[in-house]
Amino acid sequence: MKSQLQGLADPSKFQGPISIDGISPEILKSMLNSMSIIRKTEQQLAKGRQEGLIGGPVHLGVGQEAIAVGISQLLQKTDRVFGAHRSHSHLLALNPDFYRLFAEVLGKASGFSKGMGGSMHLFDQANGFFGSTPIVAGTASLAVGAAMAANLQNLNNVGVAYIGDGAVEEGVVHESFNLAKIQNAPVLFAIENNLFSSHMHISLRQPNDKISRFAEANEIPYELVDGNDVVAVFSAAKKQISDMREGKGPRLLELITYRWYGHVDWREDVDVGVNRSTEDLENWKLRDPLKRLCDSMIKKGIWSKEEHDKLDKEIDDKIFKAWNKAIKDDYPHRSSTLKYVYSEQNQEDI
């Protein structure tokens, strides 16, 4: 397959600093902080899983942090964000409460979903995170509907559907593109194209690696962006989300990225990944979205290595404490299994 991604699929490219011109230092620092939190939170989850403290699967997105962080800078608490199986970053970029994420992944009642969801079913509607569920593409149409609701409610809120390159192989995504367009629904299809669906490289699944070709087919305006350049993500999302708030209908943002871990859990999975080589992985690690931002800020004189080391240490300390607190938290009460099936039983208990 000849890549149609403007060189972005070649990991030996785009490894240098990024352009941060025109972006305020506050926004840059905020994004650096958010990406650092997500990175370290997921690394803790990898460790917890490897040590056997986490009972269920964790789909880690280390290496992909810039996407959720760049987009979430533009979102409001009343927007409607939907995720999938790999959604820790989507939630943490809206609310960096890693303690509640740890608690949820550990199945504790203090977690984001009261310990009923685990890593694959996350919820924080108060901060705009309507929910993530792991049926591939399962929430794409829900995001369209939440965006349609914004139109009916005369609100300028937007829906966001985070989906991957694998999800576009599901029929409902194409139904959703079409429905969003015909309904002029303000929904952003944020396509995290990390070139893999589980173990399969995109060249073995599709005739073309450019997912935004489907935007063209549905007359949805789109942009193809380096997903490991947080400023590029932010700038593209800014324009698109602003258009959506002005009633211009759906948008699609294709973000090229790569995950450092395998499909699930802490292993790198080079051996099981079809077309996933050590060489590629090492190269992709050099296109590190966090390091590229950090280096660019240091180069421009608005950040220093000392400040970064301090930030790292602060986050490490907080994560250590949060993890140990979550470990000691209570599991949901045994009555929870039946209690949450219907709204009525839930109410009785309140």
Partner: peptide, 13 residues
């Protein structure tokens, strides 16, 4: 599928 899903999403909103 998409229309039913959209209704589910709208209900959550």
């Amino acid at each position: 599928s998409a229309c039913t899903g959209a209704a589910v999403g709208a209900s959550l909103a």
